[in-house]
Simulated scan of single mutants.
Amino acid sequence: MLDHKGRKIWSIHPDATVFDAVAKMAEKDVGSLLVMEGDKLVGIITERHYARNVVLKGKTSPATPVRDIMERRVVIARPEQTVEQCMALMSDKRVRHLPVFEGKKLVGIVSIGDLVKSIIGDQKFTIDQLVHYIHG
């Protein structure tokens, strides 16, 4: 899936402000950023973190560092996991973004939207094959 989707990773430092994180998410048209200290993944910040931990708690995004609202226990995936396994993991852990690690190396990230697109593409292929078979 990463070969098709791409391996671009958008990240931010934990000392950056939430305002900078939200601005970067908007600029890159993504719903999350990996929080990195150098090459080390230390957390993830999503639009949901912003909504629940800044807006609803009366904080201000220019004054709040990412480290104050990021999720530190990041659920990850491995390249050998199937789309179905990743969806089950996302459902079980209630997350929408999975950083993908090959060994200790971060190689990409997949979202629930990426997985849904993959499943729809597979189903379309199957349907096309069945239609072709039926019409011979």
Rank of each mutant, 00 (worst) to 15 (best):
S32G: 14
T82P: 10
K40F: 02
I12C: 07
L89V: 12
D15K: 12
R94N: 13
I9S: 00
A77M: 01
K117C: 09
I120G: 11
K40H: 00
M36N: 11
D3L: 13
P65W: 00
A51N: 08
L130K: 01
A51M: 10
G108M: 04
K105N: 11
E102F: 09
P99F: 01
K59H: 03
I112Y: 12
L41N: 02
H132Y: 10
T64R: 00
R96A: 13
T126W: 15
R96N: 10
A63N: 15
K104C: 05
I9G: 00
D68F: 07
K5S: 07
I109W: 06
L89I: 14
M90F: 10
Y133N: 14
V74F: 05
D128E: 13
G38W: 11
V95T: 06
C86I: 06
M70D: 02
Q85A: 14
E37Y: 06
V116Y: 15
D92N: 04
K124R: 13
D128Y: 11
G108H: 11
I119V: 15
E84T: 14
V75Q: 10
V110D: 00
V54I: 11
V95K: 02
I69D: 04
V74N: 05
K40V: 01
L98F: 04
K104D: 10
V107K: 05
G43F: 00
L34K: 04
A26E: 09
F125K: 14
I69M: 07
G6C: 07
Q81L: 12
P79Q: 05
G6L: 04
R52A: 08
A23S: 12
S11L: 14
G58Q: 03
S11Y: 15
V22M: 06
A16I: 10
G58C: 01
V42K: 12
V83G: 08
E80T: 14
H13E: 03
K24L: 14
I12K: 00
P79Y: 08
I119W: 08
D15N: 15
H13N: 09
K124I: 04
R73Q: 11
L89F: 12
K124H: 07
V54N: 02
K8E: 04
T60F: 11
V74H: 05
F125T: 14
I127D: 04
A63D: 15
V22G: 00
E102A: 11
F101L: 14
K105S: 12
L33F: 02
I112T: 14
L56A: 08
L115A: 13
I45N: 01
E84C: 12
H49K: 06
W10M: 05
A21C: 06
T64W: 03
M25W: 02
V95G: 03
D68H: 04
L115V: 15
A63L: 15
S32M: 08
D92C: 06
C86K: 03
I44R: 03
F101Q: 06
M90Q: 03
P65G: 06
R7W: 09
V107A: 02
I45W: 03
V55C: 02
V100E: 07
D114L: 12
S11A: 13
H97A: 06
D29M: 08
G103I: 05
H4Q: 14
